[in-house]
Design a protein around this nucleic acid. Structure first.
Lengths: 248, 248
DNA sequence: TGAAATGCTGACCACCTGGTCACGTAAAGA
DNA sequence: TCTTTACGTGACCAGGTGGTCAGCATTTCA
C-alpha cells in the first residue's frame, strides 16, 4: 500500500459548503466572508468550551462542530488562545469602558445618591454584556480562576482587571466617607465574588434565583444595608434602583 | 537493533528509594508504607494541580515530581480522578460535618445572637480546613466552577453541596424572621461567592486583604450590616466574633 | 474564455498521553 | 539459606493532538 494514499473524493460529503456569497451591505465580500467564518468557528467553539471547559476541547472538536476542515482553523486563528481572545475582546472592551466611567462617577460622588447612581451604571454594563454575550460571560466565570496558562491568560487578565477596578472603586467611595471602615480590598472583593456567583447561578440555571431582573435591587440592598433585619422595623423608605420608593 | 531493548541499569539512578521501613506506631509496615506513598504522590500532584490546573497535569508529571515510576501511580490510584478524590475526601468530610452541625444550630436559633454563633461555627470549620489543607482548598476554588467532567466531578459535587447548604441555612434563618426579605437563594449564594472570593485572595495572595484573622469579623459586619455607613453614626457596640465588644 | 489568485481540504507528521505488563529486586516467611 | 510474595520499574502500545502543506476547487480578473 502506498504510504500516502491519493485523496479519495467521497461519493457523498457534507453539504458542499455551497459558498453562499451574500454581497454584504458594506465592506468587501472578502471581509464579510472572513467575519462569517470567524463567527462560525467562535460560536461552535464557545458552545464546546462552556460544555467541556477550555482544556477539554481540541481543535479537531471545534472544526468538526463548525463543519470545516482542520486547516481552515489555522487560516483564521493562530491557536486556541487566539480564538479565546477573539471571543473575549468585545466583552472586555465594553467592560473596561463601563468600569472606567463608573470609577470617574464615583470619584465625583459626594453623597449616597451619587454612589447609587455609579453602581447602577456598572450593573447596566454587566447586564448588557450578559444579554449580548451570555456564553462568553459564562466561560469567563468558569475559567477565570484557573492558572493563567495557554488559552486562559487573557481571561485571567480580565479577572484581575475587574478585581482591581472593584477594589479601586470601593476605595474611592471609602475616602469620601460613604462606607463603613472596612478594608476596601476586602469589601471590594467580597462584592465581586457575590456578583460573580449570582451571575453563574443565573447563566447556568443551577439554583433558582428567581427573576434575574430583580437581582440588582436585591444585591444593592444586600451589599449596602446587609442581611440582618433592622432592630426597629425596616428603615424609613429609601429610593430603590428604579427611583420609586420601596414597597412598605 | 532489537525492538525491545533490554532494561539498562543506569550507573547512577535517583536515590534508590532506599525503602525506609520505619515500623510505624500502629498498623503493619505495609499500610504505613502505602500511606506514605499515597501522601507523596498526593503532595506532588497537588502542587502541580495548583500551578497548572487539573487538566494541565499529566500522570507523567505527577510521577516524575514524586520521584517514582509511572507504573507505581496505577498501583495506588485508578486514575487522576481517584487521586483528586483522595485529596478532597478529608476536607469534604470535615466540611459537611461542620455544615450539618451549623444547620442544626441555625434551626434552633431564635435570636440574632444564636444566629451569630452558628455562623461563627462555620467560620471555624472553614478556617480549620484552610489551615490543614490550604492546597486542597485552593484547588477547589480554582476548579469548582468548571464543567463536571473527569477529575472534576467530585470537586463540583462539593461545590453544589456547599451552595445547597448555604441556601438552606439562609432559608432557616429566614423563616425565623431574622433576615431581610431577600430570596434565600440570592443572599445565600451571594455570601458563598463573597467568602470564596476572599479565600482565593488570601490563598493566592493576589490582593492585599490584610490580616486573614480579621477577615471573619469584617465579613460578618459586611454581610449582616452592609456597606453603607449608618445615617446617625455607628450602631451601638455589638459583640464581635471573639466575644469582646467592638473597638470604639 | 483562460490565467492567476485565493481559500478549503484532509492526509500526514512528530510528539504526547493514559494505561499495561514482563521483569528484576527486595522483603517476608520457612 | 532458600522460597515465596509483593512491589517498583520503565519500555512499550494504541490512540490522540497540535500543526503543516501539497493539491484541488472556486472565484477573480484580464
Amino acid at each position: 500500500m502506498s504510504p500516502r494514499k491519493p485523496p479519495e473524493r467521497p461519493a457523498e460529503k457534507n453539504p458542499p459548503a455551497s459558498t453562499s456569497q451574500r454581497p454584504g451591505p458594506q465592506g468587501g465580500v472578502r471581509d464579510t466572508n472572513r467575519r462569517e467564518r470567524e463567527k462560525a468557528l467562535g460560536d461552535a467553539a464557545l458552545e464546546l468550551f462552556v460544555a467541556r471547559g477550555l482544556d477539554g476541547v481540541t481543535i479537531d472538536d471545534i472544526t468538526q462542530a463548525a463543519g470545516v476542515a482542520k486547516g481552515t482553523f489555522y487560516r483564521y486563528f493562530e491557536d486556541k488562545a487566539a480564538l479565546v481572545d477573539f471571543l473575549l475582546e468585545p466583552v472586555r472592551r465594553e467592560l473596561v469602558q463601563g468600569l472606567v466611567a463608573c470609577g470617574e462617577a464615583l470619584e465625583a460622588a459626594r453623597d449616597v445618591e451619587a454612589m447609587f447612581e455609579a453602581y447602577r451604571a456598572v450593573a447596566a454594563v454587566i447586564a448588557g454584556a450578559i444579554l449580548q454575550h451570555p456564553g462568553v460571560v459564562r466561560l469567563y466565570l468558569q475559567e477565570c480562576r484557573g492558572p493563567a496558562q495557554g488559552a486562559r491568560v487573557k481571561l485571567v487578565e480580565v479577572a484581575r482587571l475587574i478585581s482591581h477596578h472593584a477594589v479601586d472603586m470601593t476605595r474611592r467611595a471609602h475616602t469620601h466617607g460613604l462606607l463603613r471602615p472596612i478594608r476596601p480590598s476586602v469589601s471590594g472583593l467580597a462584592v465581586v465574588g457575590a456578583v460573580e456567583r449570582l451571575l453563574l447561578a443565573v447563566l447556568s440555571e443551577e439554583e433558582d434565583v428567581g427573576n434575574p431582573l430583580e437581582l440588582p435591587d436585591a444585591l444593592t440592598t444586600l451589599i449596602l444595608d446587609g442581611l440582618r433585619l433592622p432592630p426597629q422595623g425596616p428603615r424609613p423608605a429609601r429610593r430603590k434602583l428604579d427611583g420609586k420608593p420601596g414597597r412598605p
